[in-house]
């Protein structure tokens, strides 16, 4: 018998012999506390997880803020995955290199990226997490290779908590998705928090609208 069949058979016979009662699924969790102002809470949560927040009235203001950001000005290799943002690049000096992303790209080609800008789908007030998936980033490696990450989220796209978050998610046509909450971090050496473990050394969240 294959390992598969013997494992399933062992479990089934244990099910019958143990006579443990069947337990009902409890359904959706309905007791979550709701925030009065989820947007405020979202901004607060991003700070708690060591991210930085910037609120902008519109996309134009956001683009201007990014262009004036020292991370943008110091970046040598940049990638913009947010179609609503356009920059007057090359911004200052001619040594800035912009990379584009195509589905067939070798993910290793993004190794030298200093700054990546991407659109988050929505944000979660309780924990500052932002959902991204492969429909908007064909090679997710860039989100972890980049030295710094900037994510945009629209004000009307903030949900209260993870329960609301999953109720709007569908996994039907995606192969990769991630909740990103703050920059990469570790506390594995004597529990001292260090920002920038393997992935981005910083996360800047732009709230639009």
């Amino acid at each position: 018998m294959s390992s598969r069949d013997s494992i399933l058979q062992a479990l089934r016979s244990a099910q019958h012999s143990s006579q443990a009662p069947e337990v009902e699924h409890p359904g959706s969790f309905e007791q979550a506390h709701l925030f009065d102002d989820p947007v405020e809470q979202f901004l607060e949560s991003v700070k708690v997880v060591a991210g930085t927040t910037v609120t902008c009235a519109d996309w134009k203001e956001c683009a201007q803020h990014i262009e004036n950001h020292e991370l943008f000005q110091e970046a040598k290799v940049l990638c913009n995955l947010e179609p609503k943002l356009s920059f007057s690049a090359p911004n200052n000096g001619t040594d800035q290199e912009w990379v584009e992303m195509h589905e067939k790209d070798d993910p290793h080609s993004f190794e030298k990226v200093d700054l990546c800008i991407m659109n988050g789908q929505f944000g979660v007030a309780e924990n500052g997490a932002i959902w991204i998936d492969n429909r908007f980033v064909a090679q997710q490696a860039i989100l972890f290779l980049t030295q710094h990450l900037m994510l945009t989220v629209q004000r009307q796209e903030i949900v209260q908590n993870l329960h609301q978050a999953y109720s709007r998610l569908s996994f039907d046509s995606i192969y990769y998705g991630c909740f990103i909450s703050g920059p990469s971090k570790t506390a594995d050496i004597e529990q001292s928090l260090v920002i920038g473990a393997h992935g981005p050394r910083s996360l800047t969240v732009y709230l639009i609208g």
Partner: peptide, 23 residues
């Protein structure tokens, strides 16, 4: 919601990565 709060007190880990198929 439970995992990171119980582990380190964080509201969630920095990355909750959903692997839903091969690239």
């Amino acid at each position: 919601r439970l995992l990171a709060r119980s582990a380190t007190g964080q509201p969630v880990t920095s990355y909750s990565s959903h692997f839903l198929g091969p690239r």
